[in-house]
Simulated assay, not measured.
Amino acid sequence: MNLDHPRIAIIGSGAVGCYYGGRLAQHGHEVHFLMRSDYEHVKQHGLQIRSLHGDFSLPQVLCRRSTAEIGPCDLVIIAMKATANEALLSLLPPLLKEDTMILTLQNGLGSDDFLARHFGSERVLGGLCFVCINRISPGVIHHIAQGQISLGEHSGAPQPRTHDLAAEFQRCGIQCRVEPSLIAARWKKLVWNIPFNGLSIAAGGKDTAAILADPILEKRVRDLMREIIATAGRLGHEIPLSLIDDMIERTRTMSAYKPSSLIDFLAGSEVELDAIWGEPMRRAAAAGIAMPEVKRLHEELKARIAAR
């Protein structure tokens, strides 16, 4: 990939796609945003990013209605919900040339494998976004806390391009680290995503501060985290138990943050039930490992969603 003057496409121009794509555009990159609902607003008014690292705006944004309009790119960044992955089968081909890299910033497990299966493992990288971020109105993104991307290769160990891409993200004001194992990093993120995204819905629409203010819910968070760490370890992905206290203390600094799954649930949108809760349980079951705490939460979520 040409990192000097790359053409970049953002597929999924919600909070995550607009924030990271906006950072890249802010630092001079040619970034094309595939947009649907916000297209007219952003075309006329641009993007506004309100960030703890300093606000900025992009008055002129390359927003597009179709990937055919964007054309071949050097880097495609996928930030859409994993629930819509089948749409990528028609969205991605117009963007691809021989050496195009596909970077998925999606949650949960399975998206990397889906992309590798259909477009080639050698193209695919995964990024885990540790960020508190919301789209608060058309074209307006609120970056509340954190922001690091952990970057890894689907095909195995990091390559020179992995480090080059991480360095370019760093140059553009995006904290980025290279992970030796993408799948291990994904399990590490599930340690936060499974309990907080899940309990925010199952407990009746609670933000992270409300969850941690309830001793019973905090205990469930810790029980879920221990189960996920134990499962990951048995699958060969060692995660230290000290991560539990570290994640909980960092979550306390987020104040009253609504996880993305809660926002989807309240908006009537599809929740990433399979990628975040279902697929980890399937992989555990295939290895003969039970996850009773996660299964209980998964059942509660299915009931809440069915009753919505």
Rank of each mutant, 00 (worst) to 15 (best):
P180Q: 11
I239Q: 08
S66P: 06
L3H: 02
Q175R: 03
W192M: 11
H143E: 09
D74E: 12
P93E: 07
P280H: 08
H163Y: 15
E122C: 13
M247G: 06
D113S: 04
G28A: 06
L217M: 12
R222D: 11
G198Y: 02
D164P: 03
E122S: 15
E122T: 15
I239W: 06
V271R: 04
I102S: 01
L92E: 06
D99K: 15
L182C: 05
P292W: 05
R23F: 10
D246Q: 12
L103W: 06
L273D: 00
P195M: 09
V31C: 11
L24S: 10
R7L: 09
A82W: 06
I78H: 03
L182Q: 04
G173F: 01
Y39H: 15
W277T: 08
G156I: 01
Q146Y: 11
H163W: 15
G198V: 02
M225L: 09
I149R: 02
S242K: 14
T251S: 04
L115W: 01
D214F: 09
V42Y: 00
A284Y: 04
K188L: 11
F169T: 07
P259H: 05
D164E: 14
G147T: 03
G54Y: 04
P215W: 12
Q44P: 07
R23I: 11
Y20K: 08
M1D: 03
D274M: 05
Q146W: 09
L217S: 10
R282L: 04
D4A: 12
S66V: 05
A202E: 05
Y20M: 05
